[in-house]
């Protein structure tokens, strides 16, 4: 019998802390798999944020540096500038990357920082218990928008990948999701491409991945998957929003 799936050596044996039905675990695994597939693990330094991806130093088998809330991309900039021959990725949630750290995110993109950012967007502040985030959809009920996100008060959700696709220094910008096997495969391909862009020295690469939060959305894991599709996806531009024109950058 042939092995069709096994735990990647890009992850440690530590079980994750993610809530049941949360798709963060899938995304973490995809990143680790790509690091192994591309033979990057030994020379990778990852930067984790504050938020639901904030404990990933226990899961990734590579070196990890933990950043203050919103500053993962700035820290990753420091790491990469200190060690330009290493592979550097950052992880951020929607609060981290699109609210408190928005200046850092856009500035790193503008500089064409040769790092890869994985932006996990679940439209809510998960770690703090389910408050409204910059990407919460209109009408979404959260602990700080108990009557639903109000456009008058809070405006429309921020489409960060679309914004970044307008920035010259961002070489690759993709907006993907993980609610189905097909989408998971596409997400992995996007991560792979983002990493190749960094290896090729083309500039900043950014992959937004829509993710579920059944606990704070107050739905079952299965409902959460359908919410992702029906409520989140219509809010954001999807697909590869910006691809480098150069040859040699292809998916697996």
């Amino acid at each position: 019998m042939s092995v069709v799936f096994e735990r990647t050596r890009g992850l440690t044996d530590q079980s994750t802390h993610f809530c049941p039905g949360c798709t963060h675990g899938v995304i973490i695994r995809l990143i680790a798999e790509v690091l192994v597939d591309m033979d990057l693990l030994e020379r990778t330094i990852g930067v984790e944020p504050v938020g639901c991806t904030g404990f990933c130093e226990n899961y990734f088998a590579c070196d990890i540096v933990g950043a203050a809330h919103g500053r993962a991309v700035a820290v990753a900039t420091g790491v990469k500038r200190a060690r330009p021959d290493r592979f550097v990725f950052s992880l951020q949630g929607d609060g981290d990357g699109a609210a408190i750290g928005l200046a850092e995110t856009i500035s790193a993109a503008a500089r064409g920082e040769k790092i890869s950012s994985i932006f996990i967007n679940n439209s809510i502040y998960g770690m703090t218990g389910g408050q409204m985030s910059p990407t919460s959809w209109v009408g979404q009920k959260t602990a700080t928008s108990p009557y639903g996100r109000d456009v008058e008060l809070n405006g429309q959700p921020l489409d960060l990948p679309l914004l970044l696709s307008q920035v010259d220094g961002a070489a690759y910008v993709a907006s993907v999701s993980v609610e189905s096997p097909q989408e998971v495969i596409a997400a992995k391909q996007a991560i792979h491409k983002a990493f190749e862009v960094q290896i090729a020295g083309l500039g900043y690469s950014f992959v937004s991945i829509l993710s579920t939060c059944p606990t704070n959305w107050g739905v079952t894991p299965v409902e959460a998957l359908s919410w992702l599709e029906s409520k989140m996806k219509p809010q954001f531009h999807l697909g590869e929003l910006k691809k480098p024109a150069l040859e040699g950058v292809t998916g697996p």
Partner: peptide
């Protein structure tokens, strides 16, 4: 070496944090 003008003092100190974490004098 590397000189980089950051977008703010907040970013600068966190870049410093990253470079120090990578073992360089910063």
């Amino acid at each position: 070496g590397t000189f980089l003008q950051a977008e703010s003092e907040v970013a600068a100190i966190n870049m410093v944090y990253g470079a120090a974490a990578a073992g360089e004098r910063v």
